[in-house]
Write a protein that binds this DNA or RNA. Structure first.
Lengths: 228, 228
DNA sequence: TCCGGACCAAGTGTCGACAATCATGACATC
DNA sequence: GATGTCATGATTGTCGACACTTGGTCCGGA
């Protein structure tokens, strides 16, 4: 778990602010700190056994990753997950990951492509035998997207997606159960993207990736419409 | 000038950290603080007449906007503008602003489209009579892109582009002279995008916007190749 | 009973100071 | 003469404390 997060193994980072930043982020993403709840500086400082100085710096970093909202003299709150913002994120992912797939098709190493296909092979086995383990399938979904983005080699692209949007996506997924009835379809779409990349067809890879993310967004839209 | 920056008129923001964040950012973008130079906390704190506490928070925000790099116990430095990263930014802009143009074509209000056309009319007059005023043309270029992005109505999209990438672009532009021999071509491309939006043709607007940004990137690539 | 103003408490914003870490230079040794 | 080591200085990381703002509450009056 938490396998696909950039800089996830940053234990023993020299500065306290960075460490508590990662801890609070994880707590927010996984729902231990509920969405919309107020983040009291003294309380958090006491909870993590640090002073308010480093904690404020961590809060600033959390603010810039759009996980918390701050208003002057009023304090910080965990962001409230609105449905519109979730859909907005998928729009951005469609644009960014589509471009990532295009570049990955041009620049990804053969070895990385082999690894990618191996990952999909493993996912196929998991999906075939386990319908109740959609959780791992969902984590695997992020793993797949993570590798494509890495394959683009565009550092800023990697940064935006892996350090901001993927944490948001994981937060939404932990919040609502996100029982995906789309696991089989998504896997099929992943394989199509991987094939296009293996054939070095950047244009097709981008088109397929965008269609894949669009389909995911539509599935969410349908589910939100039903729940309403 | 500095017309197209989000939250630009944030004078008298209650918190000092936010104010000095904007000031330092402007100083970095406009080159008053040279690229690659070290940012000493005591020096900056003294320069702005504040303590190191708020300054450190401002530095954290600057770090998250990718304008400065920090390494623990080693201090912060202004980012060094590498050519590769500049091109990476254009790749992201191509993906993101293409999507913004598509959505803007669907959602932009008629009034906003009229304003956009008025802006282009003004740009046309400027370009026609002034070849030495490419500076204003370049600022106007950002203004155009800014309005398209705003027209998308996607808050996170607006945030990424206006609060991060555009400042980077302005920094590069202030750093090297960025004498653009492409002003006329760029204006023409802008008008095509605006026309597609006016006709509510999202697919075409995206295609044109991506081609426009790609052309700008290629112009930069050519210039970098010559200077080398 | 309802509205308005003042008081109070909690929390945020800011500051100065101490401890830990790293760079720089001189010095001793091989 | 070159290299490794150590001391020194400066800078960063962290902490506790103070001032100011905000929100709630209580009291008084209509």
């Amino acid at each position: 778990m938490t396998s696909a997060t950039a800089e996830s193994l940053d234990e023993e980072t020299s500065t306290i602010a960075d460490r508590v930043f990662g801890q609070v982020r994880q707590a927010i993403v996984e729902g231990q700190i509920p969405a919309g709840s107020k983040l009291s500086e003294p309380a958090l400082a006491a909870r993590y056994g640090i002073s308010r100085g480093p904690l404020r710096e961590a809060m600033r970093r959390l603010e810039s990753t759009n996980l918390v909202e701050r208003r002057p003299n009023l304090g910080a709150r965990v962001i409230t997950l609105s449905n519109d913002e979730l859909l907005e994120i998928y729009v951005i992912r469609e644009a960014l990951e589509g471009m990532a797939a295009r570049i990955a098709a041009e620049r990804m190493s053969d070895a990385a492509i082999s690894d990618l296909k191996g990952l999909l092979e493993q996912h196929r086995r998991e999906v075939a035998r386990a319908d109740w383990q959609t959780y791992f399938q969902e984590e695997g979904d992020l793993d797949f997207h993570f590798r494509i983005v890495q394959g683009s080699g565009n550092r800023r692209l990697i940064d935006i997606l892996c350090n901001d949007l993927y944490h948001l996506a994981r937060m939404y997924r932990c919040q609502f159960g996100m029982k995906s009835d789309r696991a089989a379809d998504a896997l099929k779409e992943h394989e199509l993207v991987a094939d296009a990349i293996a054939e070095r067809d950047g244009e097709l890879a981008e088109w397929l990736m965008r269609r894949h993310i669009r389909a995911s967004r539509r599935a969410i839209e349908r589910r939100l419409a039903v729940e309403r």
